[in-house]
Amino acid sequence: MISEQHFSSSFTSVWHKITPLADTYWRRENLKIKRELSPIENRADPKLRGFLNELAFETFKKSKEMGLLPRKELIIPIAQNSVEKIANYIFRITNEEESIAQTLDNNAQLEVFGLTQNLMLFFPKTQSIIFRPKFSGCGIVSACEGDLIYNDCLYEIKAGDRKFRVSDIKQLLTYSSLAFLNGTLNFSKVGLFNPRNGYHWERTIDQLCIELSGMRESDVLSSITSHMTQLAISR
């Protein structure tokens, strides 16, 4: 079985069959994406970017659960207490010592705080957040989890120093199709947010499916899971 990220970024012929208009749509859509918050300054070593992105999300999650305000003197201790956990997680993925840090220097602290602050500002209502929603696997795709659901919208947090990609919306459709298959589709919208550059994108699932394929939400999502199953059988 494979991850949802692998499925979303690979199998070009499958995705072209399901969403033939995706590339054209996303080129057009990328021109409309607006900045919602001020970008943060990239202060730390770029090799630590994945580690700091994950650390900021964990810090954001814990800060919201504790009811904290986005103030540096409150946020930095939460980040420091999460360093070991996130470092172990990232090292298991990369197996590279230079991709993690055991302590946070001043630049790393400022970058983590900036990311965390933007996340807290963009998702202000604690009671409206469901962190790390879980999705059962299907066929070739393993069980997985998303980032968060907020106000009826499934969000993926993409904190890299880049624009959103068409594979990002395919990842959101992958989660949505798994939820649809299991009768747990408790959101009607999908969205992307980048706390590093402040950009945000959001659409209803049905609107997105029509734009990508000319078909309604139920047809597209069921087609995705059908292909997951067919790919597993063909292996």
Rank of each mutant, 00 (worst) to 15 (best):
Y155R: 12
E156K: 08
E156T: 13
E156H: 05
I157C: 00
I157G: 04
I157R: 01
I157T: 05
I157K: 04
K158M: 08
A159F: 03
G160E: 05
D161F: 14
R162H: 10
R162Q: 07
K163G: 15
K163E: 15
F164M: 11
F164W: 06
F164P: 08
F164V: 07
R165E: 13
R165K: 12
R165F: 01
V166D: 14
V166N: 12
V166K: 08
V166P: 00
V166W: 04
V166Y: 14
S167C: 15
S167V: 15
I169F: 06
I169G: 01
I169T: 02
I169H: 03
K170W: 09
K170I: 15
K170L: 14
K170H: 12
L172N: 09
L172W: 02
L172R: 06
L172A: 07
L172C: 14
L173D: 03
L173S: 10
T174L: 13
Y175T: 08
Y175F: 15
S176Y: 06
S176W: 04
S177V: 02
L178C: 11
L178Q: 15
L178E: 15
A179D: 09
F180P: 02
L181S: 08
L181W: 15
L181E: 15
N182S: 11
G183L: 08
G183I: 03
G183E: 06
G183Y: 11
T184E: 10
L185Y: 04
L185W: 11
N186P: 07
N186G: 06
N186E: 09
F187I: 11
F187L: 08
F187T: 01
S188A: 12
S188C: 14
K189I: 08
V190A: 11
V190I: 15
V190W: 08
G191K: 01
G191Y: 01
G191A: 03
F193K: 01
F193W: 04
N194F: 07
N194L: 05
N194S: 13
N194H: 08
P195R: 09
P195E: 06
R196A: 04
N197G: 03
N197A: 14
N197P: 03
G198L: 02
G198M: 01
Y199S: 11
Y199P: 00
Y199L: 11
Y199V: 13
H200Q: 00
H200I: 05
W201V: 04
W201H: 03
W201N: 01
W201R: 00
E202W: 02
I205L: 13
D206A: 07
D206R: 05
Q207V: 12
L208Q: 05
L208S: 06
C209F: 04
C209W: 00
C209P: 04
I210F: 14
I210M: 06
I210N: 10
E211K: 04
E211W: 06
E211F: 07
L212W: 01
L212A: 13
L212Q: 01
L212P: 02
S213W: 02
S213M: 01
G214S: 05
M215G: 02
R216H: 12
R216F: 13
E217V: 14
E217L: 15
S218K: 05
S218C: 14
S218R: 10
S218E: 08
